[in-house]
């Protein structure tokens, strides 16, 4: 009987983490921040069809960076879980925290037990009835859940993006200014991002049941010019 080489767990975890991080850093980043009427999510995404940000439920959005097929599968699981919970109980019983915990389990399981960890990072954004009830649950490739406040950055190069974004954060800012800040933080000093490069979604506090609104390209262009 042949014995596999012994690999210390520290090294195995480190290698898996490096692998996942590399995969995630290859893609473009995404930021979410509070504005005066909810949460805005801005992703650098040149594709108009393969979305990084999607609707999960009435007040909950899903955002993912990294490998598209992997986070899209997670998104579909989330939509299913949310719709089933809402059907079985009540729409009020679907909340972001439960989803984030489920995602953490699935991603943590994949990280420790599968031969290849998921090369994704996801965000469950939930808009509350007041700004203090807004929730941003950031779930990383190894299943770590981070309950972020005010803003959240997903993807590679998060340090320099947060260095640009954090000093400008203000939850009472207008939507147009929030989109500008996000675009500038994603672009950095050497580039400018146009409306075609961005995917923008708002979770707006309002009278509508479904808060998820995709901001179209012309609207984003006017925000960037303002």
């Amino acid at each position: 009987m042949s014995m596999p080489f012994y690999v210390p767990p520290e090294q195995m975890m480190k290698e898996k983490a490096d692998f996942a991080r590399k995969g995630i850093a290859r893609g473009r980043a995404l930021v979410a921040l509070q504005y005066n009427n909810g949460i805005v999510l801005v992703a650098e995404n040149p594709s108009n069809n393969l979305r990084k940000i999607s609707e999960i439920y009435d007040r909950i959005a899903f955002a993912g960076v990294g490998k598209y097929n992997e986070f899209d599968q997670l998104r579909q699981m989330g939509v299913r879980a949310a719709d089933l919970t809402g059907y079985q109980f009540s729409r009020a019983d679907v909340e972001g925290r439960g989803l984030a915990n489920q995602y953490a389990q699935i991603m943590g399981q994949a990280f420790t037990h599968e031969s290849k960890p998921l090369e994704v990072e996801i965000l469950i954004a939930e808009v509350g009835h007041s700004s203090s009830a807004d929730r941003l649950f950031h779930v990383t490739y190894d299943g770590t859940v981070i309950d972020e406040s005010q803003s959240c950055i997903l993807g590679g190069d998060t340090e320099s993006i947060s260095a640009r974004l954090n000093p400008t954060l203000d939850p009472t800012t207008e939507l147009s200014a929030a989109v500008q800040k996000a675009a500038a933080a994603l672009a950095g000093p050497d580039r400018t991002l146009t409306a075609e490069d961005l995917e923008v979604v708002t979770l707006a506090r309002g009278t509508e049941r479904r808060c998820f609104v995709r901001v179209d390209e012309t609207q984003v262009a006017t925000f960037l010019q303002a």
Partner: peptide, 26 residues
């Protein structure tokens, strides 16, 4: 809130009725 998992060949796709059936709520 448990997340339903399906294999690729057994996936109910965008069909909610089929999903409800698969999880035994019909």
């Amino acid at each position: 809130m448990t997340m339903p998992v399906f294999s690729a060949s057994n996936d109910p796709g965008a069909n909610f009725l089929e999903l409800v059936r698969r999880v035994g709520l019909s």
